[in-house]
Design a protein around this nucleic acid. Structure first.
Length: 452
RNA sequence: GAGGGUAUAGCUCAGUAGGUUAGAGCGACAGUUUGUGGCACUGUAGGUCGUGGGUUCGAGACCCAUUACUCUCCCCA
């Protein structure tokens, strides 16, 4: 049998894991710096928990897990009936009642709803775990990928949004990725829908205008036309989409267009509040075409894209006013952001942004030059390890050539050579491979040598 | 869910209008070199050309099917 892994999943080799961990470490350190506490939830959730939370398209992409014991005689009939239901597009508990986590936000909401009595609000948590989507894989899109989320629940304050923007800026600055953080408010989009065709058109409108930079104004208009919007309504949307200029100019134009709408005004105020805190943040730009697919957002929404790289968004998030209401605990507002680690990795790889230092593993290789020599070397090596220096000893007594090549291949900068001559003298040779220089030291002084 | 592309050695790929024993570079291994690697030279190993069928005197190449991978659209991190 030819070994393989499922489509859209990946193995991560040692070098890749080191680089990924660098990203995780960076993000986690910033999360902690801003006062977020860690949380982990199961890979599996009850299907009920997830269904209906991500929109119709989202529901289709949830990986469902087949129940066990379907072949048990007492289950067979139920299973067959259930299967018929499923082929009609419905879910049936007799066939599947668990699913793989689709994102980290809904499981978090579920956790908050279950533990609301124990939590001190506002509750700030971060979570870095894989999620699964039954999507067709392509560039920058995987079926298993990691998200790093930070959310705050139990606070309506826009200060939270301000903080989240700061987290985005800090992380991407530390990683060296040049990004633009786009910001909009669902309230503004709602106001637009109120003016053009009513709230039931909100999704159609947002989906269409979200594609503007991809398909152009003409195609967007065609799509809106096909969704039964009138010419005059489309004209307003076109005006809306043509808003341009710097952040202040755009807001001024928008106020003219939607300022009469109460909810529109609120949206504009929100954006203004955040911009005021970030006057010197050139990465932050308002973008009224930003919509975001997940339909639980109700307020400010974010999306982060790497500049000058052909890649979908590498982060996103927004405010949701009543996510826990879905689980029976109403009136807990929340806001959060997410980092797409896998795409961030791809961007950093493409841009060669990983520091070279993160790939260093073993620092010192001890040569194996015979039984007695090996024993001496081994004890010296343990002394070095006790000082926190990572060491290896070559696994067998073979010629220098091989041992050098091993060190070179693993990018081990130092080798320590102890042969019969050194044993007799009580010395050792430390050689630095990159510079091809070496020193001979008494063995007792080796642990004081400045390996670096 | 819809539509493209690719599949030849461990890796990256050649392979010309179908014609004899399927090639290169890199890598691996061995030697030149039994206490000093990277360089160089020499040599060795490694492929039922994704799988199954068909056309043909003859198929890596052409046709059909199938599988895997990859990209685009929808949607999304």
């Amino acid at each position: 049998m030819k070994p393989s892994i499922p489509q859209g999943t990946r193995d991560f080799g040692p070098e890749v894991v080191k680089k990924r961990n660098y990203i995780f470490r960076t993000i986690q350190a910033v999360f902690e710096l801003y006062g977020f506490a860690p949380l982990e939830t199961p890979a599996l959730e009850n299907l009920d928990t997830l269904m209906g939370k991500y929109g119709d398209e989202g529901d289709k992409l949830i990986f469902k897990i087949l129940n066990n014991g379907l072949n048990d005689p007492k289950n067979i009939q139920k299973a067959q009936l259930a299967f018929a239901n499923v082929t009609e597009g419905k879910n049936d508990k007799n066939l599947t009642e668990r699913a793989l986590r689709y994102d980290l936000t809904i499981p978090f909401a579920r956790y908050v709803a279950m533990n609301i009595g124990q939590l001190t609000l506002p509750f700030k948590r971060f979570q870095m775990q894989p999620v699964w989507r039954a999507d067709r894989p392509q560039k920058g899109r995987y079926r298993e990928f990691y998200q790093c989320d930070a959310d705050i629940v139990g606070s309506k304050s826009l200060l939270n949004e301000v903080e989240l923007v700061n987290i985005y800026s800090t992380v991407f600055q530390q990683l060296g990725i040049d990004v633009s953080i786009r910001i909009n408010s669902r309230k503004i989009l709602t106001a637009l829908a109120e003016v053009c065709g009513g709230l039931e058109k909100l999704t159609d409108i947002t989906v269409a205008i979200d594609k503007l930079d991809k398909i152009g104004i003409q195609k967007v208009k065609e799509e809106l036309l096909s969704k039964n919007l009138s010419e005059s309504q489309i004209a307003i949307i076109e005006q809306y989409l043509q808003i341009s200029g710097n952040n202040q100019t755009q807001l001024a134009c928008l106020t003219q267009l939607l300022g009469n709408s109460e909810i529109g005004q609120k949206g504009i105020e929100e954006i203004n509040f955040i911009l005021n805190f970030h006057q010197n943040n050139s990465a932050l730009t308002v973008d009224f075409t930003l919509a975001r697919g997940l339909n639980y957002y109700t307020g400010v929404i974010f999306e982060v894209k790497a500049n000058d790289v052909q890649m979908g968004s590498i982060g996103g998030g927004g405010r949701y006013d009543d996510l826990t209401g879905l689980f029976g605990v109403p009136n807990i507002p929340g806001v959060g952001i997410s980092f797409g680690v896998d795409r961030i990795y791809d961007v950093m790889e493409e841009r060669a942004l990983f520091p070279t230092t993160i790939s260093i593993g073993t620092e010192v290789l001890f040569f194996n030059l015979g039984d007695a020599e090996c024993k001496t070397a081994y004890h010296l090596m343990q002394l070095l390890r006790n000082k926190g220096i990572s060491c290896e000893i070559y696994h067998e007594n073979t010629k220098f050539d091989k041992q050098f090549k091993y060190a070179e291949k693993k990018s081990i900068p130092y080798v320590v050579m102890i042969g019969s001559k050194e044993i007799a003298e009580g010395t050792c040779i430390i050689k630095h491979l990159p510079t091809s220089t070496q020193v001979t030291l008494p063995q007792a002084e080796m642990t004081n040598y400045a390996f670096q």
